[in-house]
Design a protein around this nucleic acid. Structure first.
Length: 190
DNA sequence: TGCCTGATGTTCT
DNA sequence: GAACATCAGGCAC
């Protein structure tokens, strides 16, 4: 399955970002299984001034230039973690930021971690990291392996996907590389 | 309801 | 020393 997943994600960041919508992440914490569905993504690659990989390979961004199917976790604003799925060919710096997910199982556990319920559990990139206990220890993690696995579902049809410009950045703000599932209440606001 | 701001660590210049 | 792919709480309306 690993090779199948690799080939699915060995494409440009925007295509991979759309491909990842509707797919699941399976997180194992202390023997408990949490399952979420990816409902909102943003694409970044090395040709894009808003991307961490734009300035070339650095210790922090090295994982973005590796093979697809790995997790890139970075720390931001002094408080928060955000998680990206590395995509594109080995050697090309591209990744897809996971902006929002919909909890499918283990919801009670996530509510306890977040001290929130409903969409507030995971309708933002830093929120979902907290809900799934994703931190720097999972940077460079292989998403084919426990305790965090990516399960690609069947691609969504184009009419189920909304395309907009990205959120929370001030470079390349006109690039329409944000994708989310229409009418999904877990998509982040704005 | 919606805008504004403070909190706060890592990385890069 | 500044920038930063954020969030939550407070305050004004």
């Amino acid at each position: 399955m690993l090779t199948a997943m690799l080939s699915e994600l060995n494409c440009s960041a925007p295509i991979a970002a759309k491909r990842l919508l509707g797919s699941s992440l399976v997180r194992s914490i202390d023997g408990q299984i949490l399952t979420v569905k990816i409902v909102e993504t943003e694409a970044y690659d090395q040709s894009d001034v808003a991307s961490h990989s734009y300035k070339g390979i650095k210790p922090r961004t090295e994982v973005m230039f590796g093979p697809p199917g790995y997790l890139y976790v970075y720390f931001t604003y002094g408080l928060h973690f955000c998680s990206n799925i590395v995509v594109g060919p080995n050697g090309y710096g591209a990744a897809v930021l996971i902006r929002a997910v919909e909890p499918l199982s283990g919801i009670k556990i996530m509510e306890n971690i977040r001290l929130k319920s409903g969409a507030e559990i995971s309708n933002g990139p830093a929120k979902l990291c907290q809900a799934l206990r994703i931190n720097r220890s999972l940077n460079r993690h292989n998403l084919a392996l426990s305790p965090l696995q990516l399960r690609l579902n069947n691609p969504l049809s184009p009419n189920e996907i909304e395309i907009t410009t990205r959120v929370g950045i001030n470079k390349a703000i006109d690039t329409p590389w944000r994708f989310y599932i229409k009418n999904n209440s877990y998509v982040s606001k704005k």
